[in-house]
């Protein structure tokens, strides 16, 4: 059977996971792969924990990643990097935005944000690459480009052309924000090498 690669996107509703997974998928399609992506709308989007599952290869059947099957995880927040552990396997790579978004119990002082939470991945032989996407985005002059920085970081690990993605970004983002997005994308690529 042909090899299929599985990418899990995880984060908090409203962080721009949809655009990031869309850009990644489009680049993989352009590179000649069969690509399927699965996401959940509705209730899950109201600030809760969200995922998108992306699979590519020469022929992809199932739209879902099976437990233990994610080769790469692109996590938009640190807790959300660890929440989907059952999807990962020893040897998976997790790119993680080092941002903290406080879940309600932490924000209201009823629980603590776990310390050194990424160690729980490292202990299991999962490769962790930290990306400070928020800092990159701030530097770019447009804080809303953090998700594009993460696309950049992820793209280093995929068989896609840098130029291709840059062209896609130009196509998808409003022209007045193109420069900032391009900056974040390139800086993200640097950070993605870990």
């Amino acid at each position: 059977m042909s090899e299929t690669t599985n990418i899990l996107f995880s984060g908090v509703g409203g962080q721009g996971i949809l655009l990031a997974s869309e850009l990644t998928a489009t680049a993989l399609l352009a590179a000649g792969f069969d690509v399927k992506k699965s996401e959940v709308h509705g209730m899950a989007q109201r600030g809760g924990s969200v995922t998108a599952q992306l699979r590519y290869g020469s022929r992809v059947y199932s739209p879902l990643i099976e437990p233990g099957g994610a080769d790469i995880q692109m996590a938009f927040e640190m807790l959300e990097a660890v929440r989907y552990l059952p999807y990962l396997h020893a040897g998976s790579t997790v790119l993680v935005n080092t941002q903290r978004i406080l879940p309600p119990s932490v924000a209201t002082g009823r629980a603590d944000y776990p310390e050194q939470v990424l160690d729980r991945l490292r202990q299991r032989n999962i490769k962790v690459i930290e990306v400070d996407a928020f800092a990159i985005a701030k530097q770019s002059g447009e804080v809303r480009t953090a998700n594009v920085a993460l696309v950049g970081a992820l793209s280093v690990h995929l068989p896609v052309e840098e130029k291709m993605l840059e062209a896609l970004i130009e196509e998808r983002v409003p022209p007045r924000f193109y420069e900032q997005n391009l900056f974040s994308f390139r800086a993200g690529r640097q950070a993605g090498n870990g």
Partner: peptide
């Protein structure tokens, strides 16, 4: 496969 870790939940709001 790994079992899930105990983490503060993040329900929709």
């Amino acid at each position: 496969s790994f079992s899930p870790e105990e983490l503060p939940p993040r329900p929709p709001n």
